[in-house]
Design a protein around this nucleic acid. Structure first.
Lengths: 209, 209, 209, 209
DNA sequence: GATGAATGAGGTTTCATTCAT
DNA sequence: AATGAATGAAACCTCATTCAT
């Protein structure tokens, strides 16, 4: 019985979170009413409140789901030695997720905005992005040791720029779903590998100051 | 009299927008009440409604102000021929603004979120970023013609990636105001100029496939 | 079987009433939820509803319990002839109960308030106090016949005043549990026996108009 | 303008408190809805909330009004030297108020019950009764010095018993509005002056142990 | 008999907007 | 022009009660 109970509880929470995500994607956190969520999940008011003590908790659960999503991404990077190819694997995993599951990511801008005003969300979002940056920075450090990346660059700053590749794309794709992710990837790869700058591609000219 | 009137009107609107921006930065669009705005601007309810027909109009004006902010940035890029150095000038202008006027930019994530749900805001924000992308893409195109940038890259995609440098930084700086902008700039410059990839920096090795 | 059934039923009802009393003492009738009662009794929702048809019935049972409590008190007065000493026995019984079982009585103020708005409770509380007053009035009447109490006083009014000694103490003790009951008793006894007024204690002065 | 404003504010608060008192007397604090209060005061929801931040504040204001009511009573006692006659003046003032303004006092039992569960109300009600007890105790002390009251009685305990005369009557009158206050007063006076105990009235017998 | 998840009406509170002064 | 009190629809949340299992 506790087994069934627990599973039921988790299933209901998932049901609610799925429905809430649909609503939030449609109207944003603060414009979505609890009634919207009830209608979408086909649950009664009281049922929703049995699983979440309030709207804030549902929003917090969204942030948590975002953390898990990012955690899975980082798994894609593990295993290989730290090289540019690790970064490419990460990028590939991320861009694939975005291309084939775009709606899920459309909540991120809402979460960013919420994080700026709501300490509870800020904590979760902050932990998420710190985790991602740390993993990338570590990879960059290893790549520097292996002579693949300019050792004078601060790995933390590099991680921030790489995160920007992702965050910028999430935002732009949300605002313009027709955006072609693969073209974007091509440019990112060119920048990471020195193929952006024409001189490098052609080989050996000294870069401009 | 119409002159005085018009100036008075514009001054009041500015007063309201300044106060509203403070509130919005503090609590977000939908958590800020009209009373918050009145308290912050030290204006009466009726006064605010004389200059704006409702809260939506104030939010729309925020989006408009964002458009102007970006417009000024683009001015910084004009004048020079389209080269990597143009991009650097743009970057420098942007990063300076962000470093010395961080609070202004902290409203952007709120605007992005709003743009995703609110057609009126989406139009303004969309026009803004399309404008920025177009200007950058044009510069890239010229740089490609001058042999400075890999001609196989799609200029629009390049523009999107460069916009990501900016958007990502705005977001990260808002979430973590202690972020060191100049370290970030250094990495961006390295990527744009081929100094990121170790091979290019050392000169002439063939890049990895 | 009916015997066992009946006992089981009564036992469960007692269990529920004990738990409910704890809750009501803590939060009052209308702020206590059925869930509070379930938690306190460690019974399920359905179980409670099997023994009581609703919250109102539980509250009514509380009033009934109060009636029984008072009934026991009156037993303490029976047996002796109607004299001041009968009243003293009543007072002693009551004050002892209060001193050693204070929490039970702390529900009375809640019942008084409820009686004022809820006809069902008013009936029970009214019957209770009418019973107490009648018993006391009868005793007073007898004491008057025996020349112990001023015969010009209305026995009903005397009963009301004596009830006030009790009700006032219940209230004051509930609000301030450190109250010393025995000091209070001493004063009550002095008033009942003419020891309050200094003149009487010293013997024979004519009282003030 | 501030003058008018302030008066308007006070007038509205009074209007709301009057209406709320009617509702509370009818249904009790927790059974009265804000809508009841709005209907009774003929004000809108928002208007009520402009003057009171919530139902709790209105209840607290009721407690405060009770404090003022008691404060006025104590004024009736001041001026004379501390004697039994002071107490009679207090009693007379109180019993008159009760006889001619019964509904006002019917809220007291509700306040007592609330005081037992609600710390904010407990503070106000506690302060009120402490104030009344202190004033009475002081009078008793003076009466003892003047040889009018048995000096062996604890003045604080005497004050508590006298308060019981009042509290008991308030409760009984609320439950049974036909109660004859003057008969009650007569008994109280008899007890205070030694006329209750027949022995004293007849003069000079030694009281029972 | 027992359970506790589900219901949904109804409660409290908020706030964009209006309008008499 | 300016004021700010008033409005009331709509939001969030609670909880007595029911009923499928």
């Amino acid at each position: 019985m506790p087994r069934v109970r627990k599973e039921h509880l988790a299933a209901r929470r998932q049901q609610i979170l799925r429905g809430a995500a649909v609503c939030f994607a449609r109207k944003g956190f603060h414009q979505t009413t609890m009634e919207d969520i009830c209608r979408q999940t086909e649950l009664s008011m009281g049922a929703v409140y049995r699983y979440f003590s309030g709207k804030d908790q549902i929003i917090a659960a969204m942030a948590e789901a975002g953390r898990e999503r990012h955690h899975e991404l980082l798994e894609a990077m593990r295993g290989g030695a730290g090289t540019l190819q690790s970064l490419e694997r990460l990028a590939h995993a991320f861009f694939s997720m975005l291309e084939y599951d775009a709606e899920v990511w459309a909540l991120d801008p809402e979460l960013w905005a919420e994080a700026l005003r709501n300490p509870a969300i800020r904590r979760v979002v902050g932990a998420t992005t710190r985790g991602v940056r740390a993993a990338i920075a570590e990879t960059v450090r290893e790549a520097q040791e292996q002579g693949e990346v300019n050792p004078e660059l601060d790995p933390e700053a590099v991680a921030r720029v790489i995160v920007s590749f992702f965050e910028g794309l999430v935002l732009q794709k949300a605002l313009d779903p027709r955006l072609d992710v693969w073209q974007y990837v091509t440019v990112v790869r060119a920048m990471l590998t020195g193929l952006f700058w024409q001189g490098a591609a052609r080989g050996g000219q000294s870069p401009p100051a």
